[in-house]
Amino acid sequence: MTPWLALIRPGDWLLMLVGAALVGASIPVFWQGGLADRAIIRQEGKVFAEVDLKARKQFAVSGPLGTTLIAVEPGRARVVSDPSPRQYCVKQGWLMRPGEIAICAPNRVSVQIAGRTKVYDSISY
């Protein structure tokens, strides 16, 4: 019986290391925008607040229908409550990835997650 480790030649180790490094390096490249680090809250299309996703915070944004409540937690944000009739933006739940957005259209409020780089989604196109 040959021990398993004896089957790996020096170059194999090298290639495994290079491979692991490439895989590691590919994470920020392909998961563009990197980690979510900001939440942008908009009211009537204008920026209402830009928050770092580090601390726990609550925002109350008023719109034509009433008040939209937005919660910010480390690494994520969501719409807690909203007066819109269909509650789409509330049902979206936590937003965690750069580019994700919850739009409470009737109340004209939106929350978007932003990362280091700008990402495009189908809405941008």
Binding site: L7, I8, R9, P10, G11, D12, L15, M16, G19
Partner: peptide, 18 residues
């Protein structure tokens, strides 16, 4: 064609998988 002293089936397999 890599020198087989240094690169064995493991290298070939990793390269092929990629």
């Amino acid at each position: 064609h890599l020198p087989s002293r240094w690169f064995g089936p493991v290298s070939l397999s990793i390269l092929a998988a990629f």
